[in-house]
Amino acid sequence: MKSVVTTIVTAADAAGRFPSQNDLEAVQGNIQRAAARLEAAEKLAAGLDAVTKEAGDACFNKYPYLKQPGEAGENQTKVDKCYRDLGHYLRLINYCLVVGGTGPLDEWGIAGAREVYRTLGLPTGPYVEALTYTRDRACAPRDMSPQALNEFKSYLDYVINALS
């Protein structure tokens, strides 16, 4: 799993050297930013179900045709799966906030997503809409501190850009 520390250790190991001062400084930088992202991760984990529901509702409100026969949300089972997928993306964002990098999203969320959606005939637009709603709805200090919110939104944007 890619994170700041594992990247540094991999590079040091490839060169066969002990962790250098540069490496320690890089870890220090990661640690200094950790408080905000851990706060965001904790708040997101606490409200994960509510955020997922809001995002999904926003998406089906904007694209009601999705619930018509032959569309991606034609029955409750399929609608539930949309909510589940949104929950997965938010959970992966929680992981990214914990490790301080996009590793979890890259490895478990984005790699192969385009091919899967094309095979299943799913539109990615509604996912973008749902996550954009979450991004614009989240605000500081109601949900979390401004710096934490900044970290959270940067990962939301990362997913949005990957799905767009």
Binding site: M1, T6, V9, E42, A45, V98
Partner: peptide
């Protein structure tokens, strides 16, 4: 893994977010 990704991998095995205890 490091301390952070270790908690992520164990949370993923349960399909759960990393919660308050791990954090």
């Amino acid at each position: 893994l490091d301390a952070f990704s270790r908690s992520v991998v164990s949370a993923d095995a349960k399909t759960a977010a990393v919660g308050a205890g791990d954090i």
